[in-house]
Structure formats: C-alpha cells, structure tokens
Amino acid sequence: MSRITELLLKAANGARDFSLPGKISLLTILLILLLALLAPYIAIHSHQISSGPPLLPPGGGHPLGTDELGIDLWAQICYGSRVSLLVGLGTAFLAALGGGLVGIVAGYLGGWPDKVIMRLIDIMIVLPDFPLMIVLAAFLGPSLLNIIIVLAFFSWVFPARITRSQVLMLKQQSYVKSAETYGAGAWYLMWKHFLPEVFPLVAVNMIRLTGRAIISEAGLSFLGLGDPTSKSWGLIIHHATSFRGIYFTGFWKWWLLYPWLALMLMVISLAFVSRELERMADPRLGGRRFV
C-alpha cells in the first residue's frame, strides 16, 4: 500500500505539469465535485417539488429557470451531478477491479486460461455494446444499481487488456523471477509487484471509463431507461426533449441547454485529465512516469 500511496502523491505533484487545458479541466472536475457535495446548501429550492411557475426563464429566484412542473432547474443539475458521478465512479471502480483481476490472472497464468480470457475479451469488444445495454437495462429494470452493473459488464475488458499486457512484461523481470524462486506465491506477487506497477495505467483508464459511463447513463436515461427518481442530467434532457414543441419555443434555451452543458463539460474535462495522466504514466507517450 505504501507503493500505491507514493504513486498517488507523485501523481498529485505531477498535476503541476498539466497543460493549460488539463488544468482547466481539473478545475472543472473539482467544481462539479463541490457542486455534488454541497448540493443541499447551494440549491435554494427543492429538486423534486415545484417551487415556481412552470417553464419560468432564468431569473426571479430561479437562476436557471424551471421545467414544465415548475421544479427549479439549478437544483436538479446540482443533485443530478451526484447521480452522474455515482454512476461514473461506481462503474469505473467495478470495471477496473474486475478487469484488473482478470488481466492479472490471464497474464500471470498464461496457457489455456489466458486463451479463454482473451477470446472472451475479443467477443466483448466486437459486440455492439450500447444496444445490448438497452436490452439489459430494460430487462433488469430502472435502478441506479442495475445501470452500474450493466455498464461495468461492458467496461471491464479495457482494464483487463491493459493489465494483462503489463503483467506479461513484468513477469519476465528478474526481480519477479527471483521472488518466484524463493517461493513467492501468486497472491504475494500480485500484491507486492504487479498491482503497484499496473495501478497508474489502470487509474488512468478508470478516469476514461468514468466519462464513458456518464455518457452511457445519460444515453439510457435519454431513452427512458434510467432511474425515474434519480434526476440525473440525462433524465433532465429526456424530459426536456419529450416535451412537445420544445424546439419550436424558447424553453430549450434553459431547460435543455444547461444540463447538456453540464454533461459535456464533465465528459470533456475527464477526457483531458485522462490524456494528461496517460502522458505522465506511459513513457512511450513522451511524458513523465509515476516512478
């Protein structure tokens, strides 16, 4: 654990070397995190109960206006950031944990387990994931837990491939072979040697998976397959686009635009931060390493 802690500290120090877009993206993510944490304090009105006239434009006590039920849109976006972050981080954690373990097993054992796992990964890659997500989400029912499980099921292959390739390289190193000679077991090698070395790349992949999961959840919610009580950004967009005549009126200027901007800012910021961390973690990209 000390090795991983050291890597995290060096990653935090490495944030000083981010490019300007990377620093802006990191600041944007931090602001959205604060928005989610402080939602009960910065949202003046309820995000579930009507607090004003329906379809009220921004102003007059409602900084971003209201929806067709008179519910404050700023409150919905604040609380919706919690849902989007929960789905994104939960999916990324499950996918990285499961995929990382599968990749370590495949890379270390080799032989027929590796072949079976790689064929399964190949099948998962060529499958049309989003249509299957729609089918599974409709079958399991609309809840945040089900959405996280469905998204993680289609996301574990990416950290698995990265982890496997790293383990294949690491198990040829002299210090790993020496540890095996002295009787080190698979668990010891995984915890002491493999995990600290693959953690930076898996962590970078987790950030990328977070953005992917947020977009996928928004897509499922947009199609009406999200949790109807969650008030996620995708669900707000779904309600706005389902309103008859939304594009022939000025309502879209706040009801549709603001949640879309929040969603795009979060996903784009995650993509930029992921790129910066990948540049630092992978020496082949010309950046610094967490070593």
Rank of each mutant, 00 (worst) to 15 (best):
I162S: 09
I149C: 09
C78L: 07
P40E: 00
G234F: 06
T91E: 03
A12K: 01
H239L: 09
I4S: 01
G99E: 08
P228E: 12
A137P: 09
G22P: 12
I149A: 15
G250V: 05
L132E: 04
A11H: 05
L64I: 09
K192Q: 13
S274R: 12
S143G: 05
P196Q: 05
G52P: 07
L170I: 13
F290T: 04
V87N: 03
H47E: 12
I4Y: 04
H239N: 14
A152I: 06
S51V: 00
L195F: 14
T28E: 03
S174Q: 15
A281W: 10
I77K: 08
L55D: 06
V105M: 11
H193N: 03
W156Q: 03
I4Q: 10
L127P: 04
R288H: 15
N13M: 15
L225V: 10
S2I: 11
S155C: 01
W252I: 05
L145K: 10
L277W: 09
D114E: 15
D17Y: 14
G14N: 15
P53F: 10
K171N: 00
H238R: 13
A262P: 03
V135Q: 06
G61D: 08
I214M: 14
L265A: 15
A179Q: 05
P58R: 10
Q76A: 08
P53E: 14
I121H: 02
L265G: 03
A184M: 05
A160N: 04
L201I: 01
T163Q: 05
A213E: 03
K231N: 15
T229G: 14
T163H: 01
G60Q: 14
S274K: 00
L35M: 12
W255C: 02
D129R: 15
A213S: 08
W255P: 01
A186I: 12
T28I: 14
L9H: 13
E197P: 02
E276S: 10
L132I: 10
G234T: 13
Y79H: 14
R82N: 02
A184L: 01
G59V: 06
I71M: 02
P196E: 04
P128V: 04
L73K: 07
G245Y: 04
H62E: 09
L120Q: 05
W191R: 15
G70S: 01
A92F: 01
L285A: 11
W254A: 00
W191D: 08
E278K: 11
G250Q: 13
T241V: 13
R289N: 12
L33F: 11
L235V: 05
Q76I: 09
Y41P: 02
A12I: 12
T241H: 03
L9V: 13
P196T: 00
P142D: 03
R3K: 13
A11P: 09
S232F: 03
E217C: 08
S269E: 02
V204D: 00
G185C: 02
L56K: 14
P53Y: 06
G100D: 02
F93T: 08
G226L: 06
R119T: 04
A43Q: 12
